[in-house]
């Protein structure tokens, strides 16, 4: 019986996984491409959700709400970028500052800590009560987003953004405005994150001031899982992005499974964080304990 319950819950988990996977693509842009750890996302995902909730409940078209939510996220990223470049604050701290600012801003946007957007009362694109349709819509969002990002990072401007993340000295020497690129990347990333927040709000039927807590960890987990799963064959950028979404879906499958096994859900955040910590440590451990090319060479010479 429980097995079929679990099986029945998988499509819903997949939908949530795609939403968080889209969020993780935002994290991928900063963490992997720009080489900046941006903690703004914990706040900007909620900003996206709050803006969407307020607009939809006041009768605004849901597509317009999604667009405005995305723009709100872009503004969050701009603020962090401003802190980081113009004010010279380290990226992590800049993100934390914006996150704290957004806590107040998000409360002001919603006027309360929680705002319901019941799918019965309002016209929304996706809802937990309509999983098959939601999955289709989300797949559409996923494909369009990946296509747009694949195109953008293939352009001159996108390539200069990748160069900024890969080697900042070289980028400057080649005439790339690295500060501007960092701001742009942070804005793009948080726009994507806020879009996912708006989608999440519709899907779960409410926006909540706490909905973004620990989002960065889920994002990182999705990026890491996605990389591990697609490492073998992911040379293509689009496949890598698809891998990130897949990472989000796998994360929610595991989440669902653990819940069904009866684990205390209060512990989930801790477990996610520990798993991410271990995965982040693996490359460091590998370098420190398992490879010592110099020694090997000396042996060969001797």
């Amino acid at each position: 019986m429980a097995f079929f319950d679990w099986l029945g819950a998988l499509p819903g988990a997949a939908a949530q996984g795609i939403i968080w996977g889209i969020m993780a693509i935002g994290v991928y842009i900063t963490y992997k491409i720009l080489d900046v750890a941006d903690l703004t996302v914990d706040g900007s995902i909620c900003t996206g959700g709050a803006v969407c909730a307020v607009l939809v409940t006041s009768g605004v078209n849901v597509w317009v709400a999604l667009a405005v939510a995305t723009v709100a996220g872009i503004l969050c990223g701009l603020l962090t970028g401003f802190f980081h470049t113009f004010m010279g604050i380290p990226a992590i701290l800049a993100g934390i500052l914006t996150q704290l600012i957004l806590w107040s801003v998000n409360l002001k946007i919603m006027g309360q800590a929680n705002l319901a957007v019941p799918s019965r009362a309002f016209k929304v694109l996706i809802a937990a009560s309509r999983v098959p349709k939601s999955l289709l819509v989300l797949a559409g969002f996923m494909i369009v987003l990946i296509a747009v990002l694949y195109w953008f990072f293939g352009t001159e401007m996108g390539a200069s953004l990748r160069a900024t993340g890969s080697n900042i000295q070289m980028s400057r020497a080649q005439g790339i405005n690295t500060e501007l690129n960092k701001i742009f990347g942070l804005a793009l990333s948080n726009g994507v994150v806020a879009l996912s927040g708006a989608l999440l709000t519709q899907y779960q039927g409410f926006a909540d001031i706490n909905m973004g807590r620990g989002a960065i960890v889920i994002g990182l987990a999705s990026v890491i899982i996605g990389e591990a799963v697609t490492a073998r064959f992911a040379k293509n950028f689009a496949v890598k992005l698809l891998g990130v979404i897949l990472g989000g879906v796998i994360y929610y499958f595991v989440y669902q499974t653990v819940v069904f096994l009866g684990l205390d859900t209060d512990l989930l955040k801790m477990l996610s964080a520990i798993v991410v910590a271990i995965f982040l440590a693996v490359p460091y451990w590998k370098k420190r304990y398992f490879s010592n090319p110099k020694k090997k060479e000396e042996k060969r010479d001797a």
């Binding site: 352009t155 001159e156 401007m157 390539a159 200069s160 080649q174």
Partner: peptide, 13 residues
């Protein structure tokens, strides 16, 4: 990247 040093980097491939 180097060929475009000193030029505006736009949305061309």
């Amino acid at each position: 990247l180097a060929l475009r040093r000193g030029k505006r980097r736009g949305l061309r491939w």
